[in-house]
Design a protein around this nucleic acid. Structure first.
Length: 424
RNA sequence: GGAUGGGUGGCAGAGUGGUCUAAUGCGCACGCCUGGAAAGCGUGUUUGCCGCAAGGCAACCAGGGUUCGAAUCCCUGCCCAUCCGCCA
């Protein structure tokens, strides 16, 4: 949520920043300003009204205790009471409208964000490693998975419909090994605290991290509409400290969590849907930071580096791109995506998205911090995948495949997987 | 699923119809005191709206009701806790 004061004081700046995203969100700003002015007018009138009523009521108390007649004043107060009730109604409507508008306006891209309209304009920031070369035909992860019986899409469909996957045998074990490997890396070497949060969260939490109200159709919710399956650990973990006032000395907070993630992604069929690349339920190890505003951009760089370490440790070639303004997520001011090389697809696959939300989420969840005697200020929140599993799984199989269809296990993963190779 | 008790400031917690924005304690900040510290003393310590400012006003989970007047009484909702039942 944007700060209404910023919108009031620098509407043109806000509009021009929003315009870089494309779309027409900048057009909502004038509407917000109109509603805000109306809301404040009503609130001021209401307060004046209530103040009058309060003062008169006190006088009535005095008048009565002296045994004098107070009916005229009582009648006046009754009138004011009716006016007040009407103002309360109008002010509530205006406030609700203002909140609705604000909840649906995206964050301002950072002033240095590359301006562009589509993913094609995302600049490559750096890359690591080399594309592996093969002296035999290259299989994709679907073929390798079938050969080695690592997952079973048909039977998963029987259970849950298309877009679900069931890992089996060595595949399930590889999944588990990767999770454990990543959690150990982040907790032991990068200083994150591991959390294992609830996967089912309240509506308020989903609003806090910006999945709601705008993207409800992409979420799995319970029928009564009260709770949702978390689409990412970002939701429960960032909301851990919602409505709290943290002490500056305890920042930054660094958390890592493994959770399954549930996403409808309605209408996404057709592209990138082969195999396990895009499914409705997938595993992910997430990184979350809560920081002071002054530190968030440095913390963003280090969080991205922490996610990169996963790919480096596994010896997987990847590149880092920065999202241009038109491709940036709703709540993000700045995002780096990590894309791992998939030899089977001959393409890069997004396995991590590392974002700085500045105070956009914190304002929605009323997450603040206090420095000694200073005023309460909103924290900055960040998160990044560290990393998402199915695509990492796929890229790893493809990159480490051998002529006979077996797959080598990267050295750092061997003690987690228990073997040096995957073969039938 | 059944029963009960609750939601007040950074925290704890008093307040059951009118000088209550709200006692008291704790924490924190600043000042005094001290060789230095602790203790002690003093001051301050939520948010929103109006205002250049001084300052003023509003807000005791949310909404509705009773009343001249509600933190306080009644209703609804949301949330929290405890006990019972069921269950991994």
């Amino acid at each position: 949520m944007l700060d209404i004061r910023l919108i009031r004081e620098q509407p043109d700046f806000v509009k021009s920043r929003l315009a870089t995203r494309g779309g027409d969100d900048h057009l909502k700003i004038d509407e917000v300003l109109a509603v805000d002015a109306e809301r404040r007018r009503l609130e001021t009138a209401l307060q004046r009204c209530n103040a009058d009523r309060k003062r008169l009521s006190k006088e009535i108390g005095g008048t009565r205790s002296r045994g004098e007649d107070s009916t005229a004043a009582e009648e006046r107060v009754r009138q004011i009471g009716e006016e007040s009730a009407e103002l309360v109604r109008q002010a509530a409507v205006a406030e609700e409208r203002q909140r609705d508008l604000l909840l649906n306006i995206p964050n301002l891209p950072h002033v240095n964000a590359p301006v562009g309209t589509t993913a094609a304009e995302n600049p490559v920031i750096r890359s690591w490693g080399e594309k592996p070369q093969f002296d035999h035909p290259v299989l994709d992860h679907v073929a390798l998975g079938a050969k080695l019986k690592l997952f079973d899409a048909e039977r998963a469909t029987k259970l849950s419909g298309s877009g679900f996957i069931c890992f089996t045998g060595a595949g399930a074990r590889l999944e588990r090994a990767l999770i454990q490997f990543m959690l150990d890396l982040h907790t032991r070497e990068h200083g994150y605290v591991e959390v294992s949060p609830p996967f089912l969260v309240r509506r308020d939490c989903m609003v806090g991290t910006t999945q709601l109200p705008k993207f409800e159709e992409d979420m799995y919710g319970l029928e009564d509409g009260a709770m949702f399956l978390a689409p990412t650990a970002e939701v429960p973990v960032t909301n851990l400290h919602r409505e709290e006032i943290l002490s500056l000395a305890n920042l930054p907070k660094k958390y890592t969590a493994y959770t399954p993630c549930f996403r409808r992604e309605a209408g996404s069929a057709g592209r990138e849907t082969r195999g396990i690349i895009r499914v409705h339920q997938f595993d992910k190890v997430e990184l979350v930071k809560i920081t002071a505003p002054e530190d968030s951009y440095a913390e963003h760089e280090s969080l991205t580096a922490d996610a990169e370490r996963v790919l480096q440790s596994l010896g997987l070639h990847y590149r880092v791109i920065e999202l241009c303004t038109g491709d940036l997520g709703f709540g993000s001011a700045k995002t780096y995506d990590l894309e791992v090389w998939s030899p089977g697809q001959g393409a890069y696959l997004e396995v991590s998205s590392c974002s700085n939300f500045e105070d956009f989420q914190a304002r929605r969840m009323n997450l603040r911090f206090k420095e000694a005697d200073e005023k309460n200020r909103f924290c900055h929140t960040l998160n990044g995948s560290g990393t998402a599993l199915p695509r990492l799984f796929a890229a790893l199989l493809e990159a480490y495949q051998q002529r006979d269809g077996s797959v080598r296990v990267p050295e750092k993963l061997q003690r987690y997987f228990g073997e040096a190779e995957i073969r039938l």
